[in-house]
Design a protein around this nucleic acid. Structure first.
Lengths: 96, 96
DNA sequence: TTTAGATATATATATACTTTTATATGGTAA
DNA sequence: TTACCATATAAAAGTATATATATATCTAAA
């Protein structure tokens, strides 16, 4: 394939979009846009999903650097690594 | 799952992001941002991919309404259904 | 150092996507 | 109608992702 983008950007962009592309993960990004940081418990309780499920999806987002984690005692607090990731969700609220 | 988004939006947003999430499809969205409309030939020749491959990916984008098609004689011309879809790619050029 | 709370990881089955190649359809002009 | 160009669809094998459940690790306090 030949494009003015380098192939590396296209692959990173693909992986980031796939990381975001899941109903639970979009909902998490929305929650993290409204709250500076949230623990796994707060997320799984508010969304009413299993703890293991929340943790699983958070890991996928963390692996692609969409979110960052900081430990504080027993809790892991997750935050958006950039508000830009919410912009992606926001754009879709306009077009869909 | 419980969120202030309705579940229908989350599913549509997921499907749209998955439609975009592919190196070839991101490259196509970029081309269509720079050009009002392009034929399948123009796309497959510029990207140097097989015609069938271009057509295949264009169909995926069309199915999720990211692009629209108009026939003119032998050619099918594809356009972005909204510049907003390029915004998603643009955001990623900032963060990645 | 054991207990309990909070979070993370592993595994398995099912489902979906990608890639490649072959073939079919649509449109136009000779 | 035949031939040709442009586009679309189909099929198969390989690869990746999702979902659900079980279990492990980490941390703080008793």
């Amino acid at each position: 394939m030949k494009t003015h983008f380098n192939i590396n950007f296209l692959e990173n962009a693909t992986e980031t979009l796939r990381a975001i592309a899941h109903p639970i993960r979009i909902a998490i990004i929305d929650m993290l846009n409204k709250n500076e940081k949230l623990s796994v418990s707060e997320i799984h309780e508010q969304l009413q999903i299993e703890q293991a499920v929340a943790s699983h999806h958070l890991r996928i987002l963390k692996n692609k650097n969409v979110v960052v984690v900081t430990r504080e005692g027993k809790n892991s607090f997750y935050s958006l690594s950039s508000k830009d990731y919410y912009t992606i969700v926001e754009v879709l609220t306009n077009t869909l």
